[in-house]
Design a protein around this nucleic acid. Structure first.
Lengths: 366, 366
DNA sequence: GTCCTAGCTGGTAGCGCTGTCAACGTTCCT
DNA sequence: AGGAACGTTGACAGCGCTACCAGCTAGGAC
């Protein structure tokens, strides 16, 4: 019995080729570039492969071709809702393609990111998705030297390494503050946690908007390096009230903080928006459902991940996008928590389904 | 110039061996089983590898050894907070080990799970983590035939494929309902979304507890196959109120629903817990911060993922746990939303930091 | 001193696939 | 009709590593 199979019982390409009556290399081509085969051989190989239940050995392929079919993804957090939406978009886009996702968590450390990047690059990934634009110089050099397509996600900025997709956190924050001004608020506080680069740029946007209006005061800003949470939102708001008792609005760097502020207002019997207006950031699902409903800045997280992975795969396959930097913009979703101040001090009690007015802006507008 | 390097400029094991003055196979052993080398050679190989910046080629290793260093993880959702905690535990445990995580999303479909399982198994993973105990017969057969360790996570049940770590959703739900009974509630509604197998078992636990007390009525149960959300919690609660206006408590199959119920109560001016008590499930962070604070069943999600991956890696390395099925239990965290009914109809307005009474139970107690 | 065992080391032979290049028709042009 | 050009196919030689087994040395038992 000329035992052709490996001990594991796996079917090899050679067996498929033999059954199909072609050479192994022809069978190999069938799986990588079927158009290169004549229709006759193509169908023969196809049916042989199906009959034997052939599954390619990716390790052998990677070894022989010096390429892997792995897309590396570096994100700073696995728990943050924001990134789970982005991730879902990435995974959805990778399904159906022949690429698989290799995920690593930088924990908001650019040093950790550099380490992971080195690890990834050593495996010659087919492509790379990295978060943000604040890499170490070393990381930046590695990315520029990498011979695979790269997408930077979450925000846009100058000097993309390769492709880039996101929006301007600075502009989004400015728009949120501008909205509060438009509603008649003047003493607008800022609460922020974690203070990673993107949150920092939201703060910068807030500061710029406040300075433009001549309303900026340092005591209106309360931040911490602690990871964000709903509870923390309440605590930071408490600090803010102590520092600046006269505030009439709060811009929260994310929605968890905003929810915490909402609860803290409940606890203190502060009326929203009559006494204090609240605006969050990201527009998580619960914002539309809270009482009162909470204004937020909608960011297209799923779409960001999905488009990033799609662009990357296209680029890997040689079809580079004509537009390598994509601004997904944002929308200020106006809800009860920031509606116009009224003399009677009440807002209408509308259900969660109340129509949302939107302010849509591509970032880059001022 | 005898060009020893591959065109990519990568250092190979052979170069390391040459510099260290040993044979390639000895150098190879250094990376897999350093103890097998004499101390002298060990240090020589080590410094040679460091000097050259050697990085092993995983594809070649996988091809030659018929093994990969990939742990496959199958989870039903990437957005659900519950799984992001589990995932973080898994990733944290895999860091520092030589195994990498390959994640796939079954989207709550056991057919999709079967397909993905086939895909994974074809790559000969080092180990596998699968969610739950409700695989298709085909999946089950594949898992049992797989020649790698396997951990089932999220719940425990009879007939583990291999290892298992989780808790009894049935017991946890019973304990939650028992807590409501202990606080004097009788007409306890149930709201559930998605109705995946674990939510179904929570419903079963609820039904059993209610029947034991002679309080079960079909109209107290409102469920939907729709994915869960805060908004949906409000909608389901609205349905429940219409079907059973006399309820005095709601057990929610998860915390998002509970938050939705809380907001809907606010909207309708229903006092919590005086008119209606609320209990959630999972004890997400915001539960302790809501107003009123929300009672929930704490589940050890991070620990579950972390322990699962740790056990799996140990098993891969040949150290099987003496206890292959691990019950992580749960705790009913009592908060304001379900405190004892009072004649004066008020609860004390305590901050989020109010001490939580806990009922700790390993699942399996009745 | 001889034999045996254990511990360490190295040689050989692939793992399953693909890059490269040559060779073979076939078609189309001049 | 001759030849170029194209499309299709196959032979060969590895990719970088490890399984397997043989050989070597040292130390201990008799």
């Amino acid at each position: 019995m000329g035992r052709k199979r490996t001990k594991s019982g796996k079917i090899r390409l050679a067996e498929v080729a033999e059954l199909a009556g072609v050479s192994p290399i022809t069978a190999s081509r069938f799986f990588r570039n079927p158009e290169a085969l004549s229709v006759a051989k193509r169908t023969r190989v196809e049916s042989a492969a199906r009959e034997l239940g052939y599954v390619p050995n990716l390790a052998a392929r990677a070894l022989a071709s010096h390429r892997t079919e792995v897309i590396g993804v570096l994100i700073p957090s696995l728990t943050n809702n924001v990134f789970s939406d982005v991730l879902r978009g990435i995974y959805d886009a990778s399904e159906g393609s022949r690429y698989s996702i290799q995920l690593s968590n930088t924990r908001y450390s650019i040093l950790q990111e550099e380490k992971l990047l080195r690890l990834f690059l050593a495996q010659k990934p087919a492509g790379l998705i990295v978060t943000g634009i604040d890499q170490t110089a070393e990381s930046r050099a590695m990315l520029e030297a990498a011979d695979c397509p790269i997408v930077q996600i979450m925000e846009i900025g100058p000097n993309p390494v390769d492709m880039m997709i996101g929006f301007s956190h600075y502009d989004a924050a400015r728009a949120a503050v501008a909205h509060l001004f438009a509603q008649g608020h003047r003493k607008i506080g800022f609460v922020g946690a974690r203070m990673d680069p993107r949150v920092q740029r939201r703060l910068d946007g807030y500061v710029a908007a406040m300075k433009d209006a001549g309303s900026f005061e340092q005591r209106l800003v309360v931040t911490t390096a602690t990871p964000t949470s709903v509870t923390l939102g309440g605590a930071l708001f408490t600090d803010l009230l102590a520092r600046a008792p006269g505030i009439d609005a709060v811009f929260c760097a994310n929605d968890d903080l905003a929810l915490g502020v909402l609860f803290e207002c409940r606890r203190r019997d502060i009326a929203i928006p009559e006494q204090i207006a609240i605006v969050g950031f990201n527009d998580l699902e619960f914002m539309a459902s809270a009482v009162p409903t909470l204004t937020s800045v909608r960011t297209n997280r799923y779409e960001m991940g999905n488009t990033a992975a799609t662009m990357l795969i296209e680029a890997i396959d040689g079809r580079r996008p004509e537009q390598p930097v994509l601004d997904l913009g944002f929308k200020v979703i106006e809800r009860q928590s920031s509606s116009a101040r009224r003399s009677d001090g009440r807002t209408t009690e509308a259900g969660a389904a109340a129509a949302n007015k939107m302010i849509a802006l591509p970032s880059g507008h001022d």
